[in-house]
Design a binder for these strands. Sequence first.
DNA 1: CATGAATGAGCATTCATTCAT
DNA 2: AATGAATGAATGCTCATTCAT
Lengths: 175, 175, 175, 175
Amino acid sequence: MTEKQEKILDKALELFAEQGFASTSTSKVAKAAGVSEGLIFRHFTNKEGLLDAILKMGEERAKELFSDIVLEPDPKELLKKYIELPQKVRNDKAALEFWKLQFKIKWELEIYGEHKMAELEESLIRAFDLLRYNEPEQEANLLLTLMDGLATRGILQETYDMDSATTFLKHKYKI
Amino acid sequence: MTEKQEKILDKALELFAEQGFASTSTSKVAKAAGVSEGLIFRHFTNKEGLLDAILKMGEERAKELFSDIVLEPDPKELLKKYIELPQKVRNDKAALEFWKLQFKIKWELEIYGEHKMAELEESLIRAFDLLRYNEPEQEANLLLTLMDGLATRGILQETYDMDSATTFLKHKYKI
Amino acid sequence: MTEKQEKILDKALELFAEQGFASTSTSKVAKAAGVSEGLIFRHFTNKEGLLDAILKMGEERAKELFSDIVLEPDPKELLKKYIELPQKVRNDKAALEFWKLQFKIKWELEIYGEHKMAELEESLIRAFDLLRYNEPEQEANLLLTLMDGLATRGILQETYDMDSATTFLKHKYKI
Amino acid sequence: MTEKQEKILDKALELFAEQGFASTSTSKVAKAAGVSEGLIFRHFTNKEGLLDAILKMGEERAKELFSDIVLEPDPKELLKKYIELPQKVRNDKAALEFWKLQFKIKWELEIYGEHKMAELEESLIRAFDLLRYNEPEQEANLLLTLMDGLATRGILQETYDMDSATTFLKHKYKI
DNA sequence: CATGAATGAGCATTCATTCAT
DNA sequence: AATGAATGAATGCTCATTCAT
């Protein structure tokens, strides 16, 4: 991975996250990255190939982010970490950019990456089970869904008070 | 409003909801509507003008949908109606199209129409207040956020089991 | 000639003179005149037909302007009137508009309306002859050419000092 | 400057001079130059950018043409060279094209490039001064204005007898 | 006489992509 | 590896013109 290659990925992520995939032209990416437009195609074949590379990059970073949660043995602690995730992401510019892109792409291409969540879902189910909730699958599903809502508003609604929401949630789950 | 005008709005809604605003060209809309491309601009000035017209249309239909909830005097009934909304929308092709567009546009243009929700939020707060919840504002906010998540998955994840989720939610809120 | 017809001619003249023929769309004319675009075509067949109507109108007004000069029996007086013409036109908004259009059209369509000038040229030749100039044809031709230059600068160069130029010319021709 | 770039400039000059700026589409230019339309924009940004490039080219050639006059020390010779300029231009196809464009643009965009003439005017004033004319500024101004007329007719009126006019003028200025 | 709906061709410009160097 | 020239198709939009009412 050369320096220019990284620069392209970096700027493409930024632009795709800001303006969306379709609305970001390869020439904009090239200009922002300070490289010739042709180079993008030499390295990534396609505009789609560029997106794939970014998405793969994102998946790896997401795994890092999630692994800390998934591997947590204490169920209360696991829930806490999960619920605090949006706050954490919102305060980390790089992570926020990835999330934004992830969601934007979801809506632009209408794909909901279920498999990515499978592992997380299982760990949540286990946690709720250990905490003796009656319907752990439903609880896990509800919390995952809520998370999508939290992400939606955290990203889209600048005035959204994420801290209150998080605190309230922890209170509800008695953490 | 001539027949062709309606046809344009109709097909534009369909295409914008399916493929997104930026990725739907005016020529595609014209072709789908069986109209000359120029007609779109004569009637709606702009591609954006076309979107606005559709969005206004959607707002009116949303108001109808919401008014039934907002005006409900019985708090339990209000909550029930609100929670059942996603189910209702998911089973109504026309309504689903509008919701899809609404969310797609949110993400494409990064605007979260807070004002549209204000009335709804107030009625939810009142309901939770009447039901003697300790923190009605937080409860209302949580439910609204959850709704965004429900919509996200209901639209994006074809396999999402909306009925179970709804049932479970009603159970949680003791309805 | 209905009121609307006149309004069309009026506004078309104004716009053609300001922005040129090619750069003025029939829709602009219709909007400025407060009529439907179709009406222009009902009355004038073509965009070109509209131009022709305006040009004909202009020719008549030019004849009025010139007739006073051409019919002047005293050669000195004739020269004086001719030389003072640009000043006169420059101070008359309506006349200036016509001249401007006339010149703009000349350059846009590359036609030099020689026949319009023939009568004027003859009267100038006669005048120079009576004043015992050696080469009255050449003198007339020179003055006519100079007039084109005077018009060019009078219209195009806002800062052009037409009064000085006129005074100097009269002095040169001993008037 | 690649071959294709030059070809674009060349054909654009030709077409702009023939048909005017507004009436010459970029696709016509591209077709005439045997180039893809996109290339025009890659090299010149805009249709206006293309015009600017041509105009700058013209200015340089005009400077060459004028410098010979402006630097002439002998006043009689200077006047002679100046008066003979239109003849010279009319017999040089490339130069004529530039002049035509220059004038067409003047009328289409209504800008009179005074500053370009300033140097020339000063040298004319100096010449008339040396030749002991009473009002050298007025004389210079008159001759410049006459030149605009000469150009107008030389370009627009194919039958205009430029040689006679030039001869007569030289005779008038005793050259 | 007058309108407003409607069209097809054309416009300037942008786009993703290819290729010779 | 990297560039910059080049392209063909597409984009949003405007144009002159027609026609039913």
